[in-house]
Design a binder for these strands. Sequence first.
DNA 1: ATTGTAAGTGAGTATTTACTCACATAATAA
DNA 2: TTATTATGTGAGTAAATACTCACTTACAAT
Lengths: 202, 202
Amino acid sequence: MGIKKESTEVRKEQIVRAALGIIGKDGIQGLTTSGIAKAVGISEANIYRHFKNKDAILTATVEDLEDTISNILKAVTTRDIPPLDKLAHIFKLHLSHIQENKGVPRLVFSSELHFRHDLRDKLSSLIDRYLKMLTGILDEGVEDGSVKSATDTAAMAGLFVGMIQLSALRWSLSDFKTSLLGDGEKLWKGYRKCIEAKGRQT
Amino acid sequence: MGIKKESTEVRKEQIVRAALGIIGKDGIQGLTTSGIAKAVGISEANIYRHFKNKDAILTATVEDLEDTISNILKAVTTRDIPPLDKLAHIFKLHLSHIQENKGVPRLVFSSELHFRHDLRDKLSSLIDRYLKMLTGILDEGVEDGSVKSATDTAAMAGLFVGMIQLSALRWSLSDFKTSLLGDGEKLWKGYRKCIEAKGRQT
DNA sequence: ATTGTAAGTGAGTATTTACTCACATAATAA
DNA sequence: TTATTATGTGAGTAAATACTCACTTACAAT
């Protein structure tokens, strides 16, 4: 009876995916090696052929998240659309990503992650890059006149991220029953009104 | 050799306090019955004289948090000061409370709590009340002319809470090394500029 | 002083968890 | 084919954890 063998690259990806899924369903404390093994369909021992230990799995999961977010940001920023549209786009994409990966907010807020200096630093710099990028887009908007000139762009970038966080928290607290995108949209409209220059709406 | 006995009320309070402290230091996953016992200075078995199980301790901790936040809000709202000052006050008090109780954000964001429908509901309604109160203050400001009339007060209340969340997250990710109040202040200034009516500053 | 009760404890137990190891088998190269 | 190596596994282990239980002791009321 031939049991299929997969390369360690494939297994690593499967394991990371499974881990993020489990975190979404059962939280970080619900992430167990036996749970991962079951989800992937391999033995628990086999996990240790591909990862040194459980911590390494978490590390890989965070690195995967880094890539995903970075790619989202890159894809939007390089497009040649008005700054406010860029922001609207990023907002929607980010919430969509969270909706499809409930594990992400759980991971980001988990103290397990916050206690690991390496992961903490990774996440911290990811957020910094994110904020800088948002600030840049807002500055762009100030320049082309679509955003009020008096805007504190760095602070408003922070509010943008805070908006995403609140949306995610309330969604999680509603047991994912409310509409993440819908509730987010309401906040976005208020935010937009806040920064938009008066003279020129679409 | 007489070992001092305390009433169950006192012990309950001590246990809840210890629990919140441990959550702040070691996260929710670091909260163990033996850890609590050591922190309080009693035997592990004794904990079960005062709480049915570990879940009950979490419940009591959340209820304690509810009280604290409610009291902060009440104290500020009843004071007769301008709406914008009220908001500034709440913002500062809330961040101070977080600074002195690192366990609070960890608890609020923990999936352990989000999985307990009873606690989830408690927290959810606490946030709702919070948001409604903020919206009320902002409406007050619109009425007396200190806040822009075009403001979407409900959305801006959400942004206010998001601001607190982001501040707390970045603070935690910095290993509590950055200044929570200081970084929060920057966001607050941007926020204030956003909602403040132009004609009338202090 | 006696007694009832609430607070306190040491020594357990059953379960779960991350991780190991000896051994097996598929894929690949010689 | 044969040999090598990477992938795979069942059966374990040590440690941690929430919780129980028989038993003790402080304390308050009578």
